[in-house]
Design a protein around this nucleic acid. Structure first.
Length: 570
RNA sequence: CGGGAAGUGGCUCAGCUUGGUAGAGCGCCUCGUUCGGGACGAGGAGGUCGCAGGUUCAAAUCCUGUCUUCCCGACCA
């Protein structure tokens, strides 16, 4: 491609609205332009990379035996109503009406559509297992699109769906995908971890997220410094903490003390001169319709998701201040586990077990209770893992220690089971002629997010640095001075020879000064650069590797041998 | 949805406090000089100052409303 007419408008100044590196560089290097919040145009350069990523995904999917297809992006409301997700999915579902006032949605994911298809088209155990996938534009009306392509409202996703006879089959399909995902992200040149996760609104049991390690990642990963254990912080197991670690003398009787205006654990710890570990934190939640108080030791935080999962609820949220009064008959900042109404469900984290002389809220303005014994005074049936892990926790799998890292979620694999097939009556006939629901898995990769994640891990202060596998061009050929006849002629010759030998070349044939060309080349980040300049009369040209900045010279007559060697070393 | 910031030519921004003529740098076009890390000179094109309403003889500037974008939080595949 000749750069003179190639639409890759580079910017000298950083667009004011771009904060994160990938967004900034994609705009500056001319990969994308923004149309609206979370909605982007892919310019030729950006689209070229995107297609390379798609092809890696496609190759690895095909290798597992999955079949590519394309489902509609526009979905009639009825199919979403069948599974109940028309209501459950909420405002993130982009909805619209046609001229007859019929409701539609722009697909944010395709469980309904694919399950509906299989319900009609596959009826026999003889046709299973089956895995189908597509690479397609998805729509999600994010509350807050941000970080450029990392969280957008219209994005490109690869979604795959497996259909099996039973859970054993699902496990095999899942394992294949899990392995394929590793290959895909390795081929993209990424530093990533597969982590255990919560399944969220898509539903299902087992699930892993694929996280690209990055400081700007929105997810926190808890990983072990000794073994392979890694989990999203929302899911990470907290090891049962034992009584002996913080036991104090047995409690005397419970007393009420005045604590005017003391509302936080920190203030309380200062005010009463007690260790935070001696305070029992009471968090007021609603799980589905049920009011729940979750107890955790004062130096920990409640993981709401764990509370929801313990009670097998569908939703969880904090009660707001007015609800603490109206539904809990307590006072915000002074909520405690003693003297609650019967309808309130009390659950406690392992860390609460055995605390003596504890401090808790009194459910009265400006009052706390002291001298509480968890065993004696709290009517607890049992203790559970309800807290967030913290750095330094013990690993749940080995003797190691938990550390945190930030990650960008680029892939997610779920075992759905029969959640959708049962809801939609999607069944096959087994060998006994009996109808059985498909046992399903679903597997997503945010392809456009992957593009941004690759950039987050592959750039420097000058611009992009493409991994070989996804680079938009193989070689950036620069003629320093297009007005010099020797240089121009040699550049044209080299360009043709590279093309003839199968290299994809961006040829900077613009009538620009050398500095402009070099700056743009650094910004665009093609891994190999060939510069045709002063020594063109001697048929000598220079090369530079973008990533290492290594430079050198070569004779044009040995061009192909050199290129083959340099390319193989990338 | 709560909090904060910002909308002036393609990009980065000044002007607004104290109302009166719309500016700079980069980019773009023409000519000349230059030509290995974002050149220089001269000339030129390009802007209903986000939109609507109000105040005023007069609004980019003051007032009200509204839309959009970004950041933090809440929320979330």
């Amino acid at each position: 491609m000749r750069q003179q007419y190639f639409l890759a408008p580079t910017l000298r100044d950083t667009p004011a609205d771009a904060e994160v590196a990938s967004h900034r560089l994609m705009l500056r290097a001319g990969l994308i332009r923004q149309l609206a919040a979370g909605i982007y145009t892919y310019l030729p350069l950006g689209y070229k990379v995107l297609r390379k990523i798609e092809n890696i995904v496609r190759e690895e999917m095909d290798r597992t035996g999955a079949q590519e297809m394309l489902l509609p992006a526009l979905h009639p409301a009825e199919i979403w109503q069948e599974t109940g997700r028309w209501d459950v999915y909420g405002p993130e579902l982009m909805r619209l009406k046609d001229r007859h006032d019929r409701s539609f949605a722009l697909g944010p994911t395709h469980e309904e559509v694919i399950t509906g298809l299989l319900r009609d088209e596959v009826n026999s155990y003889k046709k299973l297992p089956l895995t189908l996938y597509q690479i397609q534009t998805k729509f999600r009306d994010e509350r807050r699109p941000r970080f450029g392509m990392l969280r957008s409202r219209e994005f490109i996703m690869k979604d795959a769906y497996s259909f099996d006879l039973d859970h054993e089959g699902l496990n095999k399909s899942y394992a294949k995908m899990y392995e394929a995902y590793h290959k895909i992200f390795e081929r993209c040149g990424l530093d990533f971890r597969a982590v255990e996760a919560d399944s969220g609104t898509i539903g299902g049991t087992d699930t892993h997220e694929f996280m690209v390690l990055s400081e700007i990642g929105e997810d926190t990963i808890a990983y072990c410094d000794a073994c392979a254990y890694a989990a999203n912080i929302e899911k990470a197991e907290a090891v049962q903490t034992t009584y002996e670690q913080w036991a104090t003398d047995p409690s005397p009787t419970v007393e009420t003390v005045d604590t005017p205006g003391v509302r936080t654990i920190e203030q309380l710890s200062d005010f009463l001169q007690v260790d935070r570990k001696q305070i029992i934190k009471s968090v007021a939640l609603e799980v589905d319709e049920q009011v729940v108080i979750a107890l955790v030791r004062g130096d920990y935080d409640v993981n709401e998701l764990k509370v929801k999962n313990l009670l097998q609820g569908e939703s969880v949220r904090l009660l707001d201040e007015s609800e603490v009064h109206s539904r809990l008959h307590s006072v915000p900042g002074f909520v405690g586990p003693i003297g609650l109404d019967d309808h309130v469900r009390l659950v406690a984290d392992y860390s609460v077990r055995g605390i003596e002389q504890a401090v808790v809220g009194a459910n009265e303005q400006d009052k706390h209770l002291i001298g509480v014994s968890a065993e004696r005074d709290l009517a607890l049936e049992d203790y559970y893992d309800l807290r967030h892990v913290v750095e330094g926790d013990a690993c749940p799998k080995c003797q190691g220690t938990i550390r945190f890292a930030q990650g960008i979620e680029v892939g997610h694999v779920f075992k759905l089971g029969t959640k959708y097939s049962a809801a939609m009556g999607a069944t096959y006939l087994d060998e006994q002629g009996k109808a059985q629901p498909f046992v399903m898995g679903c597997y997503g990769i945010g392809v456009s997010r992957l593009l941004a994640a690759i950039i987050e891990q592959n750039h420097d202060e000058h611009g992009l640095i493409w991994p070989k596998s996804v680079t938009p061009f193989d070689i950036h050929l620069i003629a320093v001075n297009m007005k010099d006849d020797h240089q121009r002629a040699l550049a044209e010759e080299v360009y043709q020879r590279l093309l003839d030998n199968g290299y994809d070349v961006l040829f900077d044939d613009r009538d620009e000064r050398a500095g402009v060309k070099f700056k743009d080349a650094d910004l665009i980040g093609i891994p190999l650069r060939l510069v045709i300049g002063k020594k063109s009369k001697e048929r000598i040209i220079e090369y530079k590797r973008r990533r290492t900045e290594e430079t050198g010279e070569m004779s044009v007559d040995k061009l192909m041998a050199h290129m083959a060697e340099m390319w193989s070393q990338l």
